[in-house]
Design a protein around this nucleic acid. Sequence first.
DNA 1: GTCTATACCCAGATAGAC
DNA 2: GTCTATCTGGGTATAGAC
Lengths: 179, 179
Amino acid sequence: MPPAPAARAKLLDAFVTILLEQGERAATLEAVAAAAGVSKGGLLYHFPTKDALVEGLAEHVEKLAAEDVDLMRAAPEGPVEYYIRTSVFADTPLDRAGVALTRLSQTANPRAREALQRIHQGWFDALAEEIGDHATARAVALIGDGLYYRAAMSGETSTTPPEDVDDLLAVVRRLTRTD
Amino acid sequence: MPPAPAARAKLLDAFVTILLEQGERAATLEAVAAAAGVSKGGLLYHFPTKDALVEGLAEHVEKLAAEDVDLMRAAPEGPVEYYIRTSVFADTPLDRAGVALTRLSQTANPRAREALQRIHQGWFDALAEEIGDHATARAVALIGDGLYYRAAMSGETSTTPPEDVDDLLAVVRRLTRTD
DNA sequence: GTCTATACCCAGATAGAC
DNA sequence: GTCTATCTGGGTATAGAC
């Protein structure tokens, strides 16, 4: 990979921020360019079309998610606990970019949807490997999805209180222990 | 309530269908009007602005969801089983309209978001009443949310196979039984 | 209650200067 | 590599006929 110019990263970051804070409709080329401190023309040099911008975000998220799956598999507390803990919105780069991509996914962006599907599959596989039972793994994955999508929808930047996460984790442990 | 003209219902239905099949971007006034078999002007007689159309959909979904909560509380198999079973996308009027509204919710429609929040709260309350333990109720609610949002995102019109639902239900029963 | 016509605006994209 | 025009299409909304 070439050095990856700073402007590209800044543009993607601006795209994510607007998507998070104002939704898809507000994420116009002009708005993204302005937020990144360049002109529309400047943006279009790096991303020739809007689809290219979406594509760039999708790739970015897939890369971050792949790294996350590695972390998940290597986590001392195990994939399940890692997964649940990190499913609550925590304003990490992956959270931000992931939620932003989710907002695009319903619009009509097959690319965004495919990426998200692969990402979720990666998480699920890691869960299923630890849990064994398919249906239980599915239930755990769905709990994470629920947390994730709630964050993606409700525009909440708020973090779920730690004790709530602990309570939820206790429930999940009860679920996986009996297998 | 006045007789509620058929055209209004047809327009809302067309709005829902386009939202489901092609996403928010495609749901323009013209497209909705055409799908409902009227002209743009005709649509604008019933819904003076696009916001009014969204508002109309939100109200419609809230009404359907309120009825669903009643059914849920009265369900012979109990609220929990009813909730999980009906959380998978089944192409019912409520499913369709609910998913359509979900697609709108991230855009920047506070109205759509508020409606969805109230709706989810209604379901959660009914669950918590049966389950007792707050954290467990939350977990069950999240599993349903996960199913729901997955349908909302992936543009899947496909129905989850019944045996998968049964498997999931078995897991949920294990979860609630121990309380 | 529904239609046509049209005004207005803004998003996405192109061309070409610097 | 970034900028300033500028074109074009299409989305929302208004006016007014039928």
